[in-house]
């Protein structure tokens, strides 16, 4: 069996799907809100001109919200809807490829693999690539917003944006370096979303896709209330990062947890799939 061609098949069939264009729309919703915010800063004189940098938009997309401390029924269900849309959007787009492939040419492919594990491992590679594609499309959308709204394609965050968005959390003289920006706005969210996506695919082996999606949404919702790297969504919530907060979540710890989840789910999926029956649609 040619391993490279197996992965190429999954990348070709799994990524070249029109559904991933929806990432533009999802990112655009976030970027539009960011533009409104930046224009407000410009009107207040905090920014010399409307528009922010590419990094401003990247930070905003996965900003999230501070951990919710339940003080009563009023704030018990403080759902960060836009953050859920961003992370959940990627999970939704990645939702059904495994079963989609099996109901198309995947059955012909899998019997040409020597083992089920190889086929499943190829799906894990696809999953990581699909999440990367979502991030690429959303990042390019952010770049387009930065350029076409009068901002700049710089990967350095603007100081008023940092102070404004992370008001009360970032120090007055805080400057976000390029490395820190890429870490909290791209790498940590990518690893976190990739981990959730692999978890979703693993759950797909046991339950219907819609339920695996809902379970992952629940995992994300848990992280809304707990500011710890072990609550998986925290790595994709920029405003909780230890880069900005003294008691924030260390992005490297989030990445480590996400990496652990990816490895664990990949191994569990391979094991479980090995013992699973491959049945037809009506069976």
């Amino acid at each position: 069996m040619n391993w490279r061609n197996l992965v190429a098949h999954d990348l070709r069939c799994g990524l070249l799907r029109k559904r991933y264009l929806a990432a533009v729309g999802i990112a655009a919703v976030q970027c539009a809100q960011c533009t409104i915010l930046l224009n407000g800063y410009a009107r207040m004189g905090l920014l010399p001109r409307p528009g922010g940098t590419w990094m401003d938009y990247l930070l905003f997309m996965y900003m999230g919200n501070p951990a919710v401390k339940i003080e009563g029924i009023q704030n018990a269900f403080n759902v960060p809807i836009w953050w859920l849309l961003m992370v959940g959007g990627c999970l939704y787009l990645n939702l059904d490829y495994l079963l989609y492939d099996l109901s198309n040419s995947g059955l012909q492919i899998i019997v040409r693999c020597e083992t089920k594990r190889k086929w499943y491992f190829s799906k894990c590679v696809w999953n990581l690539a699909a999440t990367a594609l979502f991030f690429l499309i959303s990042s390019l959308t952010a770049l387009a917003f930065a350029v076409f709204t009068g901002g700049s394609p710089s990967l350095m965050a603007s100081q008023p944006f940092i102070r404004g968005v992370f008001l009360g959390t970032a120090e007055e003289d805080f400057t976000l370096s390029l490395g820190q920006g890429l870490l909290v706005a791209v790498l940590a969210p990518y690893c976190t979303v990739a981990a959730l996506s692999i978890l979703e695919m693993t759950l797909n082996l046991a339950v219907k896709p819609v339920f695996s999606f809902l379970i992952c949404l629940v995992v994300m919702m848990v992280s809304v209330y707990f500011q710890t790297p072990f609550a998986l969504g925290n790595g994709a919530a920029v405003c909780r990062s230890g880069v900005f907060l003294s008691d924030g979540v260390d992005p490297w710890a989030s990445i480590a947890v996400a990496g652990g989840v990816i490895l664990l789910c990949g191994a569990a999926g391979c094991f479980f799939f090995h013992y699973s029956d491959i049945l037809g649609r009506e069976e």
Binding site: C13, N104, S105, V111, E114, H274
Partner: peptide, 17 residues
């Protein structure tokens, strides 16, 4: 072994890209 080494199959409706 997971699958017979040399096998061709047509099960249910043929599905391709």
């Amino acid at each position: 072994l997971d699958f017979p080494g040399s096998m061709g199959l047509l099960i249910e409706n043929p599905a391709f890209l």
